[in-house]
Design a protein around this nucleic acid. Structure first.
Length: 320
RNA sequence: CCCGCCUUAGCUCAAUUUGGCAGAGCAUCGGACUGUAGAUCCGAGGGUUGCUGGUUCAAGUCCGGCAGGCGGGACCA
């Protein structure tokens, strides 16, 4: 793969690359390191999968991939006891592998290095140079609840910045909600004598209820290992306004999970509704926006294809 | 450490001056209407009233203790 091809592959489907020049330099390095952190979660859903797929793109472009299983972060965010969190982090690890990450992917438990003396020391250093307002602002879209704010909430972003040092990160990937922490890292790390990481941000998938973000705590997600009839039911219930492409979760699922596999989507519909159609992504947007494709026909097609696409993931997770 | 206020359904809050079967809105689920969902209309489920001890025929309500939250005061070599 040549440089431009790698760049295009990495950029595809992201909302921003900070910065493209820096990313080019990173690609030229020998075994550059790309990282993403996840708070272990009871269910790994399509929102997670978007970022995992992007990590695979990075892997294919020659990056060494490190996945941080951020148990302490989840703990600081009120997700439960460390024991509970560690248990589901093993399940998450299997989910991420099921999505197609290669064998040399490194999974690292946050607590395995986040209590090192040097790490702790640097937390204090960073705590001294970061304003409360800045730290809280960076957490606006991440923190679990919006009142009874705990000190944990501002320790969280500091740790995330330091993780990038300890994991030797060249590129940090995250959904758009991670942006402000990433920007804090880009500003803070050089001050501490380290190179700023390149930051890649993927879009957030809307919840099946049409809300801003698919989230395992809101019952508006499709898990990567949901059984076919569960996927069917959830998609049938999905918010899907006729003719509207923006913020439409069914369209988004087609974009990020169907059209990344196939060039076209086959719409099967009865003759009385116009008969079958075969659409590429661009056609889909056009025709749907013109009200020439009924939401139910779209749903049925996406349901059928998504169930097939997630089949190997389900199988992998059922095996031992 | 001291004082005051607060804690009721998943969430926000009601529950008559003076103890008498714990309610509403939102959310959830179901039905109607749309060839989807949503919106709208109709209906249903949902509770150890923070925990604990007491007073009383009867306690969300009164009294004691504990926990958590909020505010103030005090201390500050």
């Amino acid at each position: 793969m040549d440089l431009n091809f790698k760049m295009e592959n990495i950029k595809r489907g992201t909302l921003e690359v900070v910065t493209e020049e820096e990313l080019k330099d990173k690609i030229k390095k020998d075994k550059p390191i790309a990282y993403i952190g996840y708070e272990p979660s009871g269910s790994v859903h399509l929102g997670h999968a978007i970022t995992v797929k992007k990590m695979i793109d990075l892997q294919n472009a020659g990056f060494k991939v490190k996945i941080l299983l951020a148990d302490f972060h989840a703990y600081l965010n009120g997700k439960g006891s460390l024991e509970e969190i560690e248990k589901i982090s093993n399940y998450n690890k299997k989910c991420f592998r099921a999505l197609g990450l290669s064998e040399d992917t490194e999974f690292i438990l946050g607590s395995s290095f986040q209590t090192l003396e040097d790490y702790t020391h640097k937390i204090y250093e960073l705590a001294l140079s970061t304003t409360l307002t800045r730290a809280k602002r960076s957490m606006a879209q991440i923190t679990r609840d919006s009142k009874d704010h705990k000190v944990a909430e501002v320790i969280y972003p500091l740790m995330q910045v330091l993780d990038m040092i300890f994991l030797n990160v060249d590129v940090a990937l995250g959904g758009m909600e991670q942006r402000k922490i990433h920007m804090l890292a880009r500003e803070s790390l050089p001050r501490m004598g380290y190179e700023a990481p390149v930051c890649l941000h993927t879009p957030l998938l809307h919840g099946t209820d049409g809300s801003d973000k698919m989230s395992s705590s809101k019952e508006n997600y499709i898990a990567i290992d949901d059984e076919p009839d569960v996927i069917r039911k959830k998609l049938q219930k999905s918010f899907c306004p006729q003719g509207q492409v923006e913020g439409n979760p069914v369209i988004e699922i087609a974009e990020h999970f169907v059209f990344t596999e196939d060039k076209t989507l086959l719409i099967e519909r009865p003759e009385k509704f116009g008969g079958n159609l075969e659409l590429n992504y661009k056609d889909l947007l056009e025709i749907y926006a013109k009200n020439e494709l009924h939401p139910l026909d779209l749903k049925n097609s996406v349901i059928k294809r998504l169930i097939e696409i997630l089949e190997p993931v389900r199988e992998y997770l059922k095996s031992d």
